[in-house]
């Protein structure tokens, strides 16, 4: 068991999708802390504690959308995988894209899982339950 609760960093530009994930977590009674970044740049600032942001310390899990303004999901993955401190981060992809090339590219960056938002509400619920199980069972990087 973790001594410190796992923080979920949601990197998603659609606030309704964020709301969907929050509602799903609420309905599952998951009370872990939540941090939301609108895009890759903001997420990096949170992870590195730059631009006046409070640095997010481990343990955390990142739920990443692919299509975002400024810095998209793949660019964000490229950034953290080359950052010695951030490269061990656990990342799940939650996106509408079903394209094979997106899926393969994401796994090239060693993501923990690729979830397609096919049916929105069900997908949020499934993603939320997966995450809540995941961090209770899996030992996360410290």
């Amino acid at each position: 068991m973790q001594s410190k609760p796992v923080t979920l960093l949601i990197v998603e530009d659609d606030e309704i999708d964020v709301m969907g994930i929050q509602r799903a977590l609420n309905s599952l009674k998951v009370a872990n802390p939540l941090v939301v970044a609108d895009d890759g740049i903001e997420a990096l600032e949170i992870l590195r504690g730059t631009n006046g942001r409070e640095k997010l310390e481990q343990p955390y899990v990142i739920l990443l959308d692919l299509n975002m303004p400024r810095m998209n999901g793949v660019e964000f993955l490229d950034e953290i995988r080359t950052d010695p401190e951030l490269k061990k981060s656990i990342v799940f992809i939650l996106t509408t894209s079903e394209s094979d090339s997106d899926i393969m590219q994401a796994y090239d960056y060693n993501v923990a899982g690729y979830i397609v938002k096919s049916d929105a509400r069900a997908s949020f619920m499934e993603a939320a339950s997966l995450l809540s199980f995941y961090w209770t069972i899996v030992e996360l990087p410290k």
Partner: peptide
Amino acid sequence: SHDLKAPLRSMDNLAVW
């Protein structure tokens, strides 16, 4: 068909919520 789907889904979600 792809990009317009996302806001539609959001509308559906909001109606349900």
